[in-house]
């Protein structure tokens, strides 16, 4: 049976936890706002670029990055958070990645991983998956250059023929409370439905090769960069709601414990009174 002192101690500790979760929520909210602005501003550019690339890809196949080859090995870029305490954010991603690996295995394609963010690396390190490259402790300072580093690693392997397909999976930001897991094929660049509509021939200036040579890596970099931005915003969103829930739960717990404490206190007062009354009664004889 817990004593009064024990209950008081527990209340104090839960209160402390609540303070921490509340603070984390505020921090996440502030960071979310910044991340959201960055992503909203960056989106039109990346979407426009995607449109242009898609219509370009539909027209020409004169580049290795556009060529589809039968896959034997694929690379999956897994973008997770650096830290936990953000609800099911990382778990869902890991599960999706695992499902994807299984799915590809059924088609006898081996999938290797490139992890961005520590959590994904931690999880798959202990499993039977090859992690070819890891980028840890980067999610706090994502930049266009970081996307460039990731992309150059990936394209190098892709162009060397080591991998025939490259995918990326990340949490895409919808709103502060909803994140959608997005798995997208990064390489080769395949024109989608809309882009494959027959259109007029293009005039290239300078040459087609030069344009593709420069544009394709840039395009992939922009796609990865928006993926990173998305992931960061999602992470803060997920953490915010997780901490909000934790704060509410702590509040509930405090209420319950306080109730218990008061009951217990009353009980002990009653017992004490009974004892005194009993003692006085006995003295009367």
């Amino acid at each position: 049976m817990a004593s009064l002192r024990d209950i008081r101690k527990r209340i104090a500790s839960v209160k402390n936890t609540q303070k921490i979760t509340k603070a984390m929520k505020m921090v996440a909210a502030a960071k979310l706002r910044r991340a959201e602005e960055a992503i909203k501003a960056g989106r039109p550019f990346s979407e426009k670029m995607r449109e242009v690339m898609m219509s370009l890809a539909a027209r020409t196949h004169a580049h290795q990055m556009l060529e589809s080859r039968p896959p034997q090995k694929a690379l999956l870029i897994l973008v997770t958070a650096e830290r936990g305490l953000c609800g099911a954010f990382n778990t869902n991603l890991q599960r999706r990645a695992e499902a994807f690996i299984k799915e590809m295995k059924a088609k006898s394609v081996q999938v290797d991983l490139l992890t961005v963010g520590r959590k994904g690396n931690d999880y798959f390190r202990r499993r039977q998956v090859t992690i070819v490259e890891k980028f840890n402790n980067v999610m706090n300072t994502i930049s266009y250059d970081l996307a460039g580093q990731i992309v150059s690693t990936v394209t190098e392997k892709f162009l060397a023929g080591e991998y025939q397909e490259v995918y990326v999976v990340y949490n895409s930001f919808r709103s502060a409370v909803t994140q959608v897991i997005t798995l997208r094929k990064l390489l080769p660049i395949v024109p989608d439905e809309e882009g494959s509509k027959p259109r007029q021939a293009y005039l290239y200036e300078p040459s087609e090769e030069e344009l593709l040579e420069e544009l394709l890596p840039k395009y992939v970099q922009v796609q990865v960069f928006t993926g990173l931005l998305d992931s960061v915003a999602s992470e803060h969103g997920a953490r915010m709601s997780a901490m909000e829930a934790a704060t509410t739960n702590a509040g509930e717990m405090i209420n319950k414990l306080t109730l218990k404490l008061n009951r217990k206190r009353q009980e002990s007062i009653t017992t004490e009174l009974m004892e005194i009354v009993g003692g006085a009664e006995a003295l009367k004889g």
Partner: peptide, 19 residues
């Protein structure tokens, strides 16, 4: 301002891609 010099575009221009 294109890489190959400044260019003007009016309605009905040939589809083109340039730096």
């Amino acid at each position: 301002p294109g890489v190959m010099g400044e260019f003007g575009v009016l309605i009905g221009h040939t589809p083109m891609l340039t730096f």
